[in-house]
Amino acid sequence: MEVTPTGQMPTGGSPVELPINAVRPPRPGRLIGAAVALFFMVWLAYTVIVNENLHWDVIVSFLMDGRILGGLWVTIQLTVFSMAIGLVLGVLAAVMQLSDNPVLRGTSGLYTWFFRGTPLLVQLIFWFNIGLVFPNFGIGVPFDGPKLIEWQANELITPFTAALLGLAINEGAYMAEIVRAGIRSVDPGQREAAEALGMSHRQVLIRVVLPQAMRVIIPPTGNQFISMLKTTSMVSVIAGAELLTVAQRIYLGNFEVIAMLIVASIWYVVLTTIASIGQHFIEKRFERGHAALGARVRRNLRPFAKEPA
């Protein structure tokens, strides 16, 4: 390789190599900060591990306990069902909110206003005790007309159905706002293009608007799902038989309060971790057609990256 004194205009035809092998400036502050953080974490781990009051053997033995696993299954069911119903309610409320009809808009507004305005805990207790207000449920003529079928509230409202009602209806109110924001994020030109093809309002919504709104709806819905995994623990106030309720029942018998709470927490962390991974893949799926731009930008920013085979 030909070497030219730096700063001189090269005389030959071929360009001259000027490699950069710069020395990084020292960052003592950052180094000290990292050392303090590391020390703190090691100390924290040490105190937790050597602490005899934590009963790690009990924690390990109860991790796969049948009752705990049963509670875990109820937590998963409650989360999945209430999110699914909440999503449907949310889409419905959002579409009503964006309607031209003031009665539909008002109904939807009232729903979100009421269920976001009262505490979930209150709603759960209310649904569990709904029998005090409406002792019987039936299908038939409204306004006290004859009934075809009738149920007693006490048979219908188990802790599980009360929990499902409370969680799903409350979730729907929050999902309505998320879905509404998603729908509004879609370029109005998309709707025009679809309408110019002769699509009906419903077709425009299902084929064009919602699939694009999903990109905006999915990330906060993932957050809601992860939050819901833990919110189900509120159901313990009505003895919902989910993870926390079961853990509480066990520690009322064996007095291992902290150990049982840690067992429940470990499972909650496992669930939220799995949900986060799932969220990542679903987000990728709905990036269709948009991923290309991101990939191109990244490629341009790294001009020396390996070309994909």
Binding site: D187, G189, Q190, E192, A193, A194, E195, A196, L197, G198, M199, S200, H201, V208, P211, Q212, F286, R288, G289, H290
Partner: peptide, 26 residues
């Protein structure tokens, strides 16, 4: 009614300044 309007629009093609292709479809 909306359904009739859709029927009337069907045989009229429209091309927009900003294309408005559906970005989630090839």
């Amino acid at each position: 009614p909306p359904a009739e309007l859709c029927r009337q629009r069907r045989p009229i093609g429209m091309v927009f300044q900003r294309f408005h292709l559906f970005p989630h479809r090839t």
